[in-house]
Design a protein around this nucleic acid. Structure first.
Lengths: 210, 210
DNA sequence: TACTATAATGACTATTAAGTTATTACAATG
DNA sequence: CATTGTAATAACTTAATAGTCATTATAGTA
């Protein structure tokens, strides 16, 4: 009675096509950005014709957002996992820093796309997509902000607006990823992780100074 | 003998046109971003015909970069002025934070354009323009980094790579400007300036904690 | 005022690329 | 193996816009 939901050949092909198109789109968008990436290039790269793209995706913007959606999910779920369990806030902050740093170190092209989106969203995509992405990021900022709130309550951290502090931390991490890209740094990420961790928690001031 | 270099009517008009086009371009680019801003819109907004734009500027990209150039100069020279004189590093850090925060608070549209450029540069503009802009920003990062170096030497700051610390500071400031834009915050910037100043120098950790 | 050179115009061209659709290929099914 | 409906194709349409150029207007000058 095991109602084995065997996929027909057609369903298999359909799923395979969809994946292949998404993979191709990720590649081309990451390499060329939204404008320069054309539907023709993506189709060719995927080994299908342009018309086929439109059987699977409504339009270019739709394809774009679905393409990044997956990697973004991956990132956000990594962050989520790194915050599971009952650890002290300091440990969790460290986990965020190292997880994010290492993820983008391994996905530099995707990092550029993220910058690209954020920069372009305010100006070059329909408001609707901005809202969608904002929602997408929400859990990420919420989780960091909760960690900070927890730290405040426990008396580990100073009193701050947790969400603002979360933004600060997130952008501190991004700034060093950017630094690494611009200066083509190859030294171990761990050094930069430590730097962020230290500055975010203790600041630049030397003990006893001022 | 006062060799008064009187401008002819033609020269006056020419200079006026040029200024008017730049002003219009700043406006339209800030409102719509690079892609959406068309030469027609810019021309119409400036009250000239499209052909005229090409008498004054080589092409769209050229116009774009000349349009932002001016505001960028203004910003960089403000930062420069705020670092003049013989003040202790702490005072100078404060000056950077408040100058930058307040400048972008007053020029939110321009801030968006800056994000837009940075995001798009890696992917959507010729490498040449990226290099040009990098050079443009150089003095800004150099000055901050020198302040930090000075602080290190004087024993006020911990030992860090000054340029990385400069990046950290710059992006911390940007992160809160971004926060203000996204959350449509209207509370006084001074609060946010103080937050950055404190976190950058002393971090989030409560005295005596951990 | 008349002549010349430069500035300005806007219709025009050329290109690019998103999205459509008529046609063809192919998988499922009895 | 024949029939049918769905998937895929690629040539086509459409729209947008950067950049050009022949024509017109205007400032400088004698």
């Amino acid at each position: 009675m095991a109602e084995e939901k065997l996929l027909t050949k057609r369903e298999v092909v359909t799923e395979f096509r969809r994946r292949e198109i998404l993979r191709s789109a990720q590649e081309v968008f990451a390499r060329e950005g939204f404008q320069e990436a054309t539907m023709d290039k993506i189709a060719q790269n995927a080994g299908v014709s342009k018309g086929t793209l439109y059987l699977y995706f409504k339009n270019k913007t739709d394809l774009f957002f679905q393409a990044i959606d997956e990697k973004l999910n991956e990132f956000i779920s990594l962050i989520h996992k790194s915050l599971e369990g009952d650890h002290p806030p300091l440990k969790k902050i460290w986990n965020v820093v190292s997880t994010q740093m290492e993820f983008f170190e391994d996905h530099k092209a995707f990092f550029k796309v993220c910058l690209n989106i954020r920069g372009g969203l305010y100006l070059e995509h329909p408001q609707e997509y901005f809202e969608r992405l904002k929602e997408k990021y929400q859990p990420y900022f919420n989780e960091i902000s909760q960690v900070i709130e927890q730290g405040c309550e426990q008396g580990t951290f100073c009193q701050v607006e947790p969400m603002k502090a979360a933004y600060l931390l997130a952008e501190m991490i991004n700034s060093l990823i950017l630094y690494r890209i611009i200066h083509e740094t190859t030294n171990p990420v761990t050094q930069d992780e430590k730097l962020i961790y230290r500055v975010f928690l203790r600041g630049l001031l030397k003990k006893g100074a001022e």
